[in-house]
Design a protein around this nucleic acid. Structure first.
Lengths: 340, 340
DNA sequence: TGAGTGTCTGTGAACGTACACAGAGTAGGT
DNA sequence: ACCTACTCTGTGTACGTTCACAGACACTCA
């Protein structure tokens, strides 16, 4: 039987002081690793801490220090994508490892609806977090306004156009998209299309821009199928649309690996062989790329690193260092496999 | 240029009291919705709150109330699985929605290594959370001991054998596995094997037990391929092993949809047609099931609901209600599609 | 009128910590 | 001998809330 009767009270700094025969102040100095404590007092206090099982009370510490020792991770994505897009999970884990290394707690704030935006805005105003990492904000995102108004230390993964002032970390989507499209062109494909997803975000629109850069004069707007999200279903739909518009299409740049996986399904459905009939490339080099048949040629994106760097940016601002202006861009790399 | 000069101080309950011309106590009563406040005072205070932009300080509130208003979600899985197994994400989102509805914050604690166990144990002892939801604990899990020792309100998703005393929520894996295996037998398959994953957890071992229940005398231990984790790669390896042991195998129960997806890959590799040559069924009805070709027959598991119910169990314990002994089992359902 | 009851309000104390300050002691230099 | 500098320690106060208590007032009923 699990009852909860005498939930014994936690030891405080007073208990330690009494046990060690010193004052609160000295104990505090030991706990916070400050100098000016005699070796004698230090060992007595350490023994006392061990004996009474003392752990500092965060609420009290936060109260006096005016901080929460937590950083929010705002994910502004619909439920389904949160589960389907491996990048988000990677970013989350990357941020988490950087934060816990610095003894900060990560609090995940998932926004899916209008109501969530309000809840999160209230949460941010409440001083529950000392800073935020924002993943995949949109243009004119209301949460961005809230962050600006509160003057909360923040870092963005990706950077909406209207965000020039705030620090961000990302990759050069445009250059990377251009690079892999050129490589695809290099395989001799003649009719190259793109399944362009999430055009309301910089990652989506920049990849499309890189695609058109690479094709130059040969760019045919009719061979771009825009879809809303980076999901398997949208990839399949996008490919079906492309096949309907041009049955002779022989090259496809999918805006992400998930999109490519969905597209492969549609191609298989239509009886097209990959890479013989159609060459296809993706973006991300997520777990999906190795799961496709054939193995996907794609752009490797350091998603975990993005999360880490964004978290580190927030941490450095918290230390009072000025944010890096203009953002940080991490390197990408083309990974050439079997699908094109 | 983003500077951070006058980070204006937050309004306190005193500011509100002064603005409204009343005392702290009355403001506190309004904020906490207590009775015995005159209508006059109430509207004056509400106006004052609006005017000065008052938001209660959590640290101060937590300090005096001796709680943290947060619940930990402990995920004890390797990094890779965290991203690959959609159940974990679903459980996480389910728990998060139940907790935020009750104005509790969810703090995710991911354990991947021995060092993480210590960090999390320290975190739990620090009073940072009022309770915990534990996902996929193992037998003899050290974190379980810590929770018991701290007498922390907890709920488990799934239930290791050595946990009889603590509340849990789960499904009847054994009965469900038996049900879908019987259904597979009913399609006339003669040589039925299983790819059994994660036997160190109740979900894994119970599904195997249900499988043997269904086969009865016809059970052939040689046709069970045990693999460590619920991953795509392990599914593929397990299927290769089964094919090596019995090339004539014509039915497979995969311990999860991810496993089944990996197995389908191996079957395609080996030139086997599904469902003509081999019938295969999975478990979970996750996004994977609809992504497979052919569509997967599987058991629907309410992963989101598991997370919600576990969180609600913790919340009710926090309200002082006694935990439900013996656990809560949610219903599952067989979803029959094309793969068998 | 007086006691009793219910409504409303203000005040002091407490939660557990960090920080500034004062003061004691010791050592070194003139 | 004195001043200065450095090391170490204890005490008072502040952080922003909640809660218990006491007191003021109004109303009812004997």
């Amino acid at each position: 039987m699990v009852t909860n009767p005498g939930r014994r009270k936690r030891a405080t700094i007073h208990d330690v002081a009494a046990e060690a025969g010193v004052s609160r102040g000295t104990v505090s100095r030991v706990v916070n690793n400050e100098p000016y404590v005699s070796a004698e007092a230090r060992i007595a206090i350490e023994a006392a801490i061990e004996k009474v099982g003392y752990v500092p009370n965060t609420a009290a510490r936060n109260l006096v220090m005016q901080r929460s020792q937590a950083v929010g991770l705002i994910v502004h994505e619909p439920h389904s994508l949160f589960l389907e897009d491996p990048n988000i999970g990677e970013i989350l884990l990357g941020a988490n490892s950087a934060l816990s290394r610095a003894d900060y707690q990560m609090v995940s704030l998932v926004i899916e609806s209008e109501r969530d935006t309000e809840r999160v805005a209230r949460y941010l105003s409440g001083g529950f977090v000392d800073g935020v990492v924002v993943v995949s904000a949109r243009e004119q995102d209301p949460i961005t306004r809230v962050i600006e108004r509160l003057d909360l230390p923040a870092a963005f993964v990706g950077h909406p156009q209207d965000l020039r002032e705030l620090p961000y970390v990302g990759i050069n989507n445009r250059a990377a998209a251009r690079g892999i499209t050129e490589r695809l062109i290099g395989t001799g494909r003649q009719r190259i299309g793109m399944i362009a997803a999430a055009l309301d975000r910089d990652s989506g629109s920049d990849r499309l821009a890189g695609f058109t850069d690479a094709l130059g004069d040969r760019f045919d707007p009719g061979l771009v199928a825009p879809v809303p999200l980076y999901t398997y279903a949208d990839g399949r739909d996008g490919m079906r649309a492309l096949l309907a518009r041009d049955p002779l299409i022989d090259g496809v740049f999918a805006a992400s690996d998930v999109i490519a996986a969905g597209a492969l399904n549609a191609l298989r459905e239509a009886g097209r062989r990959v890479p013989e009939d159609v060459g296809i490339v993706g973006f991300d080099d997520s777990a999906w790329a190795l799961r496709c048949q054939p193995l996907l040629s794609t752009v490797r994106q350091p998603a975990n690193g993005l999360g880490q760097r964004a978290a580190e940016s927030v941490l450095s601002q918290l230390r009072g260092e000025p944010p890096v202006l203009g953002g940080i861009l991490l390197d990408t790399e083309i990974v050439w496999r079997d699908s094109a």
